[in-house]
Simulated scan of single mutants.
Amino acid sequence: MGMKFDPSMLRSYFIAGTQDIKDDRTIGEVLKQALEAGISAFQYREKGPTSLTGDAKLKLGRNLRALCTDYQVPFIVDDDVELALETNADGIHVGQKDERVTKVIDQVNGRLFVGLSCDTAGQVQIANETAGISYIGSGPVFPTGSKTDADPVIGVDGLAKLVTVSKLPVVAIGGITEDNLKELPATGVAGTSVISMIAQSDDIFRTVKAMNAAFAK
């Protein structure tokens, strides 16, 4: 059994894979800095034409998993049940275009918590009625460059509406920067999840501190 889900895990949620590191650092080095800086969760999302597969992906997953264990921060895998189970992940995150979330819930059988991406009220309502989902990821809130297949921007108002509909804690995603971060607590989200804001930060400590300060309870 991994860590039990807690909404505070969503405060400063870092998502990354090798494709998101744009300089000569390794993803392990970036993650270690982010963990030192105080991120509340990490999701390993290896997606894109340059990303790792097979044994290389599993090996890296295990290494990143071990780093998260050292810092007692939950390790979440994006959309790969097999990898999540093989790395002893704490959670798995599923998108609307991925395998059906009900199938994933059955496969992980209570061993991992499950997060689901929802960007419409209809999707949130279905999630509300689905036993076994712990949290919802909603966005993109702002225009984003990290995901080539990103959905239309929902904006801060759209995000606030989804939070109102949701019975589950919501984490915001998409185009979040240190400048627009302060617009998000008023929506009622539990925190923010980011890729490039941390992966391409010129000062990871400052960035993560800003994320945690915005949602200091």
Rank of each mutant, 00 (worst) to 15 (best):
V104L: 06
T144I: 02
R206I: 15
A66D: 00
N128V: 00
V156R: 02
G28A: 09
T130R: 13
S8Y: 10
E129T: 11
V163W: 08
Q200A: 13
V171N: 01
S40F: 10
G17E: 05
S40Y: 06
D55P: 15
K32H: 04
G132Q: 07
A84D: 05
A150I: 01
Y13C: 03
G175W: 01
L168N: 02
Q123N: 09
I173L: 04
D6N: 15
D79C: 03
M1P: 10
I126K: 15
G175L: 00
R45G: 00
R25K: 10
K4T: 07
S40G: 00
Q72S: 11
P169Y: 13
A199H: 04
E36C: 12
I39H: 09
I126E: 14
G17H: 14
E99H: 14
G132H: 11
D98G: 08
P7R: 06
I105P: 05
L10S: 06
F205K: 10
K22R: 13
D98F: 09
E36Y: 02
L67K: 04
G132M: 04
K103W: 11
D179H: 15
T69G: 13
D55M: 12
V124C: 03
T177D: 01
S51K: 09
L184W: 13
I76S: 10
A190G: 05
I76W: 04
F142G: 03
G188P: 09
M197D: 07
G139M: 04
G28V: 02
R65C: 14
